[in-house]
Design a protein around this nucleic acid. Structure first.
Length: 507
RNA sequence: GGUCCCUUCGUCUAUCGGUUAGGACGCCAGGUUUUCAUCCUGGUAAGGGGGGUUCGAUUCCCCCAGGGACUACCA
C-alpha cells in the first residue's frame, strides 16, 4: 500500500485569489479526491509587508463557492496545524540552524544596499550578479570569518540572513509528472536566502519545512515555480527528507496579446479574473474588481472551463460535473503549454449550465431583478418559473433575463422600426378581427388559443405572416421572443387585447 | 543578458510513426421556427522553419526561430 495522497494549495494572502490560482486549487482538489487523498489549504504569509486584510477569508469563500473547499485548513481538521505560516514562525529557525550546522547553509551579513550596488555594477558591465559559489567567499559571510566572529556579530545585533550553500558541479535530473526529466546545473543556481533578517523564513524554507511536516505527497503548482524546483529538491536532500513528487501546471495566458493572466488585468479584458467580487480597500477610490459569482457565472461553469484549460480526458466530452472530473482526472494528461483564456467559450459554458438549471432556482435568482423593476407583488413564483423556462435558452446569464422578458410584465413602449414595416394597410382590420376571435375564447391556454386562431386564419384564407407578425409586434414590440401563444396565455386575454388595440392606434 | 519550460485550425484541444489530421468555441451558409434563440446539416481554418532517424514523420532526435516563466531578505 502506497502512502496516502496529501496535496495542498498554498496561496499567500496578498489579495484576491485569481483565476490561475483557482485552477491550481482545482487540480489539487481533483487529484486528491481521485486518489482518496486529502486536500489541504495552507496560508503562506511569511511576508508581513504584503499581507492584505480580508484576502484569507476571500480565498476560503471562493473555494467554498466553487465546491472545492479543503479537507484541512485553519479551523478545520487541524491535523498538522497551524495552517498559517505566521503562526508557525517559531518552527522555522531551528531548521535553518540545522542547515547551518550540517554545512548546508551560512550566515550572510551583506546589506540590501550593498547587494543592490553589486547588481547595478554588474549590470553596467553587461554581466549578471549571482550570489553563489563563485563569489560567496568574497562576500560578507560566515564562510570567511571565524565562528567566534560570527557569533559576536550576531550577538551585537547585526542584521543577517541565512543562505543556502548550493552544492557545486552537479547536474540535477529532476522528475516532473507533467514535464518529465528536467535538467539543471547546480553551478548556475544562486544561494537563495532561506531566513530573513526580520526573523521570518522565506517562501523556500517555510514551504519545504511545512510540506514535510504536513506529509505532503505531491506538490502541484504553477509553472512559475519550475525554476525553484532544484532549490527545493536540494533542500529536501540537505534535510535528509524524502521529497514529494512534483507537477508544474501550465500557465493561463491573456486572451489577447502576450503574457500570463494576472491580477492586474482586472476587468480590462472584459471578463472577471477573480472568482468573487473584490473591493480594494487600500486604493483611494476603493476600486472594485468584478467576480464570476456576481457576474452571474455558475460555479459549475468556472470549474468545467478551468478544468479543460490544460487538461482533457482524451474523449470528445466537454461538459463535466465536478464528480465526473474527480473520476476522470489524470495528471499525466495535463498539457505542457500555456493556454489562452477564451472568454467567448467561457460564456458558452455558462449558457450550457444555465439551460440545465431547474426553473425554480432560476426564478428565485430572477425574482430580485423583477422586484427591482417594481413587479414583485403582482407575480407569483409559478408564473415566473414559466417565464424563465421560456426565455432561458436565449440567455447566457440570469442578468439578461429582464431584457428578454420585460414584455411579460409591461406593454411595449415602442415598436421596433424595421419590424413595423410588416404593419400594412390591411393590418388594422385584421387585428380588429383577431381581437374578436380572441374575445370569444374561454379556455385561454396556449395550445387552445393557437388552434382557434389558426382555424380562423385557414377558414378565411389569411396568410400566417399577415397575422402573426403584427400580432407579435403588438405584444412584444419587436419580432423576437418565445412561442407567441405561450406569451398570450401568460399575459392573459385582457392584456393581449389591450396591447393589440394600442398597436392599432399607435401604428 | 542568464537559466528553464513550451510550440497542431483565430482560441481550447485529439492524435501514444502509416488518419481524407478529429472535436469544441467563434465565424459563414442552409434547414427547422410566424420571429429571436435553441436545435439539426454543411462550410471556414492547423502541424513555426531547417536538418536528420525511418520504407514512412504532426508524432522520435538535433539546430534555429518564436512565445512564456524565473532571475528580491515576494510568494
Amino acid at each position: 500500500m502506497s502512502k496516502q495522497v496529501r496535496v495542498r494549495f498554498a496561496p499567500s494572502p496578498t489579495g484576491p485569489l485569481h483565476i490561475g490560482g483557482v485552477r491550481t486549487a482545482l487540480f489539487n482538489y481533483l487529484f486528491a479526491k481521485k486518489n482518496n487523498g486529502v486536500f489541504f489549504l495552507r496560508i503562506e504569509d511569511t511576508d508581513q509587508n504584503r499581507f492584505v486584510p480580508g484576502a484569507e477569508e476571500y480565498i476560503m469563500e471562493s473555494l467554498e463557492w466553487l465546491g472545492i473547499a479543503p479537507d484541512e485548513t485553519i479551523g478545520k481538521n487541524e491535523k498538522f496545524g497551524p495552517y498559517k505560516q505566521s503562526e508557525r514562525k517559531h518552527l522555522y529557525k531551528q531548521y535553518a540552524d540545522e542547515l547551518i550546522n550540517s554545512g548546508n547553509a551560512y550566515y550572510a551579513f551583506d546589506t540590501a544596499e550593498a547587494l543592490d550596488l553589486h547588481r547595478k555594477q554588474h549590470e553596467e558591465q553587461g554581466k549578471t550578479f549571482i550570489y553563489n559559489w563563485h563569489n560567496r567567499e568574497k562576500l560578507d559571510t560566515s564562510l570567511v570569518i571565524s565562528a567566534e566572529e560570527t557569533a559576536k556579530r550576531i550577538a551585537n545585533g547585526e542584521d543577517y540572513v541565512i543562505r543556502f550553500k548550493t552544492p557545486v558541479d552537479e547536474t540535477l535530473h529532476l522528475q516532473d509528472i507533467i514535464r518529465g526529466d528536467v535538467k539543471f546545473e547546480t553551478n548556475l543556481l544562486d544561494d537563495k536566502v532561506l531566513f530573513k533578517s526580520d526573523g521570518m523564513p522565506t517562501y523556500h524554507l517555510a514551504n519545504i519545512v511545512d510540506d514535510h511536516l504536513m506529509e505532503t505527497s505531491h506538490v502541484i503548482r504553477g509553472e512559475e515555480w519550475l525554476p525553484s524546483m532544484p532549490l527545493h529538491i536540494l533542500l529536501y536532500r540537505a534535510f535528509g527528507w524524502e521529497a514529494p513528487e512534483f507537477a508544474h501546471l501550465p500557465l493561463i495566458l491573456k486572451p489577447v496579446g502576450n503574457g500570463k493572466l494576472s491580477k492586474r488585468d482586472g476587468d480590462k479584458l472584459g471578463f472577471p479574473v477573480f472568482p468573487l467580487e473584490w473591493t480594494d480597500a487600500s486604493s483611494i477610490d476603493k476600486t472594485v474588481s468584478s467576480g464570476y459569482r456576481e457576474k452571474g457565472f455558475f460555479p459549475e461553469t468556472v470549474i468545467n472551463f478551468l478544468a479543460l484549460l490544460g487538461w482533457n480526458d482524451g474523449t470528445e466530452q466537454e461538459l463535466f460535473s465536478l464528480e465526473e472530473l474527480v473520476q476522470k482526472f489524470d495528471l499525466n494528461r495535463v498539457h505542457k503549454a500555456g493556454a489562452k483564456f477564451d472568454p467567448e467559450k467561457n460564456k458558452w459554458f455558462n449558457h450550457q449550465y444555465l439551460v440545465k438549471q431547474n426553473d425554480a432556482d432560476l426564478a428565485k435568482a430572477f425574482a430580485p431583478i423583477v422586484a427591482e423593476k417594481g413587479f414583485s407583488t403582482t407575480l407569483e413564483m409559478t408564473k415566473l418559473e414559466k417565464i424563465v423556462s421560456l426565455i432561458k435558452e436565449r440567455a447566457h446569464f440570469v442578468s439578461e433575463f429582464w431584457d428578454l422578458s420585460d414584455f411579460f410584465f409591461v406593454a411595449p413602449k415602442s415598436y421596433d422600426e424595421k419590424a413595423s414595416k410588416n404593419w400594412k394597410e390591411e393590418t388594422p382590420a385584421l387585428m380588429q378581427e383577431l381581437i374578436s376571435v380572441l374575445g370569444e375564447i374561454t379556455d385561454f391556454t396556449s395550445l387552445n388559443i393557437e388552434t382557434i386562431v389558426k382555424d380562423w386564419m385557414t377558414k378565411n384564407e389569411i396568410g400566417m405572416g399577415k397575422v402573426m407578425q403584427p400580432f407579435r409586434l403588438s405584444l412584444v414590440g419587436a419580432l423576437k421572443g418565445p412561442h407567441l401563444f405561450d406569451i398570450v396565455e401568460l399575459i392573459g386575454k385582457e392584456e393581449t387585447i389591450q396591447r393589440i388595440e394600442k398597436a392599432i392606434t399607435t401604428l
